[in-house]
Simulated assay, not measured.
Amino acid sequence: MSDDLHAALELREACPRFEESGLTSVPYSVRLMPGDCMLVACRDPVRATRFADLCSGLIPLLSGQALCMGLDWDHLPEHRAWALRGRIGRVMQQGAWIDLFGTDLNILVQQLHHTRTPTEDLVAQAITLSRRFGLPGLPTLSPGRLNNADRARAACVRAFMGEPKLLILEDPVDLETADMMTAFLAELTAARERGCGVIWFSREPDLWHGYNAAGTRRFRLLDEGLMPMKQGV
């Protein structure tokens, strides 16, 4: 069946195991359709990462279900679960960089592993995205040798590679990298128009000011769970 018939992400009373996740064992329910966007305000970066892990099928549940593109994470064999994660673009708080490799390989490795796209096509796409996000080209230095702003740009390049079906973005833009907001919103809009569902976490909700695109909802992620925000907040 077509992915478009399924929610990009659906949590059905999904209650995580606290001892294995650190998330409060409360039920989370949300349905994110292709092209929709969830803006999630969360001051605690660790909590945001754990919730992102829940959405990615990395946290065991006490009860309920977590589904991605119509597939229940708990019912997928490990190799199929990792293949499904290959269709998720993610910016992580801690970067998840491997400093033994150049930033270019860090950016390319997910697509090299999960797709049959020719390497030269992936490199061309990565170079194009790198320039759009303000890098002079695809960075070859190890991630640890880039400054914080360029690592943030590289993280966005990696997340948007391969036209993902779901984007999970943990503070992709902050006050230090606000100069790339125009490029970021352009890529975000293009991804949503292709049918990609988006979860955008931010410790600085003021960065969302003026972003009122159709299909966008706002939430706060608290100890008590995921709470809807009033429109315009």
Rank of each mutant, 00 (worst) to 15 (best):
R116M: 01
R218W: 12
L23N: 07
C15K: 09
G95V: 04
L71Y: 12
L166F: 05
K230M: 15
D53N: 14
D104T: 07
L188T: 08
I98N: 10
C196S: 15
A152G: 14
A152S: 13
D53W: 13
F101G: 01
Q65M: 08
L100P: 02
A191M: 13
I199F: 06
I107Y: 04
H114Y: 14
M227P: 04
L32G: 06
D44V: 05
V40N: 01
K165F: 13
M92Q: 04
R12G: 01
I59T: 15
W208N: 09
L207M: 11
Q110W: 02
Q125P: 02
T24A: 11
M69D: 08
S202M: 04
Q111R: 12
C55G: 06
A126T: 07
R87F: 05
R220Q: 11
A48L: 02
G102H: 03
L141W: 01
S56C: 15
L112V: 11
L108S: 06
Q111E: 08
Q110K: 12
D121K: 14
L58P: 00
Q231H: 11
D44G: 08
R153P: 00
V46Q: 10
M69P: 09
F219D: 06
L167S: 11
S2K: 10
E78D: 11
V40E: 00
H6C: 05
N212V: 13
C42Q: 00
L222I: 10
S21H: 07
R218I: 06
E187L: 14
T117P: 02
D3C: 08
S56W: 10
E204M: 13
M181C: 12
L32Q: 05
R145Q: 11
L112F: 06
A213Q: 14
D104R: 04
M180E: 08
G134Y: 02
G215P: 11
T182C: 13
T49V: 05
I88F: 08
V157E: 07
T119M: 05
P27C: 00
L169R: 09
A96G: 11
D104H: 12
L84Y: 06
A83G: 06
M38K: 00
I107F: 03
R203V: 12
E163V: 10
A96S: 12
G95P: 04
P205C: 06
I88P: 02
G102Q: 00
L61R: 01
P77M: 03
M181K: 14
D99K: 00
I107T: 05
G102M: 00
A152M: 08
M38V: 01
A14N: 06
A48R: 03
H79I: 11
F160V: 06
W97A: 05
Q94G: 14
F18V: 09
G232K: 09
L175C: 09
V233F: 14
F18D: 00
D3K: 05
H75E: 13
E204F: 15
Q110V: 13
F201P: 09
L105I: 10
I199L: 15
P205H: 07
G102C: 04
P45Q: 00
F160M: 09
F160H: 10
T49G: 12
G89S: 08
L67R: 15
T140M: 03
T128K: 10
G225W: 07
